[in-house]
Design a protein around this nucleic acid. Structure first.
Lengths: 246, 246
DNA sequence: GCTTTCACTTGATCTCAGTCAAGGTTTCGT
DNA sequence: ACGAAACCTTGACTGAGATCAAGTGAAAGC
């Protein structure tokens, strides 16, 4: 079972140790965090928390992917966040969840009870400072995404999403730059549609089109090869040097 | 001249004293801030800073409205933030601006040189804490807006924008709830289009339609009366109780 | 092994918002 | 007072993506 593999793991061996909210913590602070942390596992498709529910914990994604989703009364949904390993869930000082949080893949989270975490945050500037950094990064990502949602065509939206996923995988496995990039899509067509503000039919059609033109290669439905990252980036409509800014 | 009216104003008399990044500061901290602050004024339409430029200050909007805008190579633009009085501009720890910042109306900003402000932030948890709060609020607003951009119809987008502006004005002039709401639009049709991911023609048509149906009343191009806020909120497609959550 | 279900693809058609074009108002400079 | 420049409105047409519908393929349950 997933859970058993991780429970009681020492923070110093944690795969997200240097990127999560605890990144700047020293040994003492880490010890305090260890005292209030616990792991939770979710299967792909499970809901971590429903919008409006009481939220008595905050936490970090350790492995897998979670999504934040908003739903309108008539059922239209929009994904408003894609949480990757080390990303933070929840907001100190708020009681109820503003969005549905769902496990998009199998998911492991490192959770802290909210009250003690808030206390700890007040006492340890390292945590508050890191959380501010991470929140500012997320705000930038959200604004980047607003351009995608508001102004890009369906084709550009798909290319943008594939670029983001490809870039993330590349940064996790830091590799030589040239050569094809290979990864598995962690999202269903429907989840992609919810993220991109499209229908799943349009997502499917645009992926087929990119495949037909050789910009991507598909093996099965989810296994993607990008022979030339630059061509994909061109389709995304970003500044041509976008990939090298980071 | 606008500038002269405000220069050397004491922070304790500042109109945004209790809502800006300095909200939680005590008298001592405020004094330190006063030492590094200066005011800058901009006319409507002026650019405060260009994307990519060196940014050697951060600051708060004191009066007027500023906008954050992203532009694609081919000229498509998307507004990604609307900064109202008390909102914060800039990011401690970053050198260059990621977006164009423009004065949408005449604008006064309270600026701090970046380096001293960063120093001050490290020393005074009150400022860092308030900045975290404000950033989390902005992240929520950005995610709210992602739903608007991704899933709402043109009509719902217009109604959403009008609701937001109306609600802001209502909270600045806290008034009895019932009765019509009156305000001036601080944005041109084009700026609305950039914010909503529409063309200015569509904005104009939808505003005309809402007017024809009596959901809004217009005097001139910018002066708006909302006879029944609930009807407008219905058109925005939000949860029916949305307006009372705050 | 067979059915059911889930995830996806593809086609035909429709519709909402974009595009192109013309004209109206208001404001501003001279 | 006049002309120019913003800013806005309206109309006719177009097209990208939504909708409706049918079908494929692979995995899961019995």
């Amino acid at each position: 079972m997933l859970k058993a593999q991780i429970d009681h793991t020492n923070c110093s061996e944690c795969p997200i140790r240097h990127r999560a909210v605890c990144a700047h913590c020293d040994a003492n602070e880490l010890e305090e965090l260890e005292g209030i942390k616990y792991y939770r596992s979710f299967e792909a498709g499970q809901t971590v928390i429903w919008s409006g529910d009481q939220m008595n914990f905050v936490g970090s994604v350790v492995s897998g992917i979670a999504s934040l989703t908003q739903t309108m009364e008539d059922g239209r949904t929009q994904m408003v966040g894609l949480l990757l390993p080390s990303d933070f869930v929840g907001r100190p000082g708020r009681d109820s969840a503003p969005y549905d949080v769902q496990a998009t893949t199998d998911l492991v989270m490192c959770c802290f009870r909210k009250k003690p975490f808030e206390q700890l945050m007040n006492d340890t500037p390292h945590i508050a400072h890191r959380l501010l950094q991470m929140t500012l990064d997320e705000l930038d990502a959200a604004r980047e995404w607003m351009l995608v949602l508001g102004r890009k065509t369906a084709r550009e939206k798909i290319a943008s999403l594939l670029s983001i996923i490809a870039r993330r995988d590349a940064s996790i496995v830091p590799k030589a730059k040239p050569g094809p990039i290979v990864f598995d899509l962690p999202l269903t067509r429907e989840a992609m549609a919810d993220y991109l503000g499209l229908t799943l039919e349009t997502v499917s059609r645009q992926i087929s089109a990119l495949k037909k033109e050789g910009i991507i290669e598909l093996e099965g439905k989810r296994h993607v090869t990008i022979p030339d990252m630059r061509r994909l980036m061109d389709e995304a409509g970003d500044d041509s040097d976008g990939g090298f800014l980071i």
